[in-house]
Design a protein around this nucleic acid. Structure first.
Lengths: 70, 70
DNA sequence: ATAAAATGGGTATTATATGCCGTGGACTGG
DNA sequence: CCAGTCCACGGCATATAATACCCATTTTAT
């Protein structure tokens, strides 16, 4: 329930760093707020699937890569 | 952008039917409203990842199975 | 043909996702 | 020491997701 957001955020952070993005660069490229990306990575927000897709597309990975199993 | 919700809904509907659930059964088992499940399947709502997980768990599939590629 | 089940689709209210502003801390290079 | 980058974190306003009703239509089964 709660760990879902956390694990999603961990996935995002790992992939974002592996692609050489800063939070702010990613946020800017995705047209979203820098503080919001931080909250997503910290697992503080329950984001919508459209944001999920936007982040995946911007970061250059599959949406499935961000979604934890189980 | 927009087709994302539609394709998600199509995936949900396909898997739900393959598992022998009606919208109403699924909604009841997941503790949500029947009409909401219908709207999700028709791609009318931009659901959050917690709803995504709840639906996947209830229907007995992986969250990744509901999320379209690309 | 008729009843029952399943779904579509509307509307109104409440909860919350998201954007926008700021502050401060850790770290780096000049 | 100072300027710049990156990030954690918080408050607040607003757009929108979540929820709970309702009724009409289609589909299925008898």
């Amino acid at each position: 329930m709660c760990h879902i957001k956390k694990r999603f955020g961990q996935n995002l952070r790992t992939i974002r760093k592996s692609k050489g993005f800063s939070q702010e660069h990613l946020a800017y490229a995705a047209g979203m707020d820098r503080s919001y990306v931080g909250k997503v990575e910290r697992g503080e927000v329950n984001l919508t699937i459209e944001k999920l897709y936007l982040l995946a597309k911007t970061i250059g990975c599959s949406p499935k890569d961000l979604v934890p199993e189980d």
